[in-house]
Simulated scan of single mutants.
Amino acid sequence: MDAQNHQQYLSVKDVAGRYRIGVSTVWEQVAAGRMPAGIKLAPNTTRWRLSDLIDWEAGLASSHNHST
């Protein structure tokens, strides 16, 4: 099976834990455009694709490497 069929989704608590920040900081970073937005599944349910976060991290690393 291809990787798309095995997409992993993270809750806001999972995202906060991944980056060792608070849940409210995740929401602040998303609102400021400094972190990818999650996918709203229901009024009180948002999930982030792990692959989106990994791509975002790679972009951060790439832009950091180009600036040094």
Score class of each variant (00 low, 15 high):
Met1Cys: 13
Asp2Met: 01
Asp2Glu: 10
Asp2Ala: 09
Ala3Thr: 11
Gln4Tyr: 07
Gln4Thr: 14
Gln4Val: 15
His6Val: 10
His6Ser: 03
His6Glu: 13
His6Tyr: 15
Gln7Asp: 12
Gln8Glu: 12
Gln8Thr: 14
Gln8Phe: 05
Leu10Met: 15
Leu10Val: 14
Ser11Phe: 02
Ser11Arg: 08
Val12Gln: 07
Val12Thr: 04
Lys13Phe: 03
Lys13Ser: 13
Val15Asp: 13
Val15Lys: 05
Val15Asn: 08
Ala16Ile: 02
Ala16Phe: 07
Ala16Glu: 03
Gly17Ile: 04
Gly17Asn: 13
Arg18Gln: 11
Arg18Lys: 13
Arg18Trp: 11
Arg18Thr: 09
Tyr19Ser: 04
Tyr19Val: 01
Tyr19Asn: 04
Ile21Trp: 12
Ile21Lys: 12
Gly22Pro: 03
Val23Gly: 04
Ser24Ala: 10
Ser24His: 11
Ser24Leu: 10
Ser24Thr: 10
Ser24Asp: 12
Ser24Pro: 07
Thr25Tyr: 07
Val26Phe: 06
Val26Lys: 06
Val26Gln: 01
Trp27Gly: 00
Glu28Arg: 11
Val30His: 07
Val30Arg: 13
Val30Ile: 02
Ala31Met: 11
Ala32Pro: 15
Ala32Arg: 11
Ala32His: 09
Gly33His: 03
Gly33Thr: 00
Gly33Asn: 05
Gly33Ser: 01
Arg34Ser: 14
Arg34Cys: 13
Met35Gln: 09
Met35His: 10
Met35Tyr: 11
Pro36Lys: 02
Pro36Thr: 00
Pro36Phe: 00
Ala37Cys: 06
Ala37Asp: 10
Ala37Glu: 15
Gly38Trp: 00
Gly38Pro: 09
Leu41Thr: 04
Leu41Ala: 03
Ala42Asn: 05
Ala42His: 07
Ala42Arg: 14
Pro43Met: 12
Pro43Trp: 06
Asn44Met: 14
Thr45Met: 14
Thr46Val: 13
Thr46Gly: 06
Thr46Gln: 05
Thr46Trp: 00
Arg47Pro: 11
Trp48Val: 01
Trp48Tyr: 06
Arg49Glu: 11
Leu50Asp: 09
Ser51His: 05
Ser51Phe: 10
Ser51Asn: 12
Ser51Tyr: 07
Asp52Met: 05
Leu53Gly: 03
Leu53His: 03
Leu53Asn: 08
Ile54Gln: 13
Asp55Thr: 08
Asp55Arg: 00
Asp55Met: 04
Asp55Lys: 01
Asp55Ser: 09
Trp56Gly: 00
Trp56Lys: 00
Trp56Val: 01
Glu57His: 03
Glu57Asp: 15
Glu57Trp: 05
Ala58Leu: 06
Ala58Arg: 04
Ala58Trp: 05
Gly59Phe: 03
Leu60Asn: 15
Leu60Ser: 05
Ser62Thr: 12
Ser62Arg: 15
Ser63Pro: 09
Ser63His: 08
His64Gly: 07
Asn65Pro: 04
Asn65Ile: 03
Ser67Ile: 06
Ser67Gln: 11
Thr68Ile: 09
Thr68Val: 15
Thr68Asp: 07
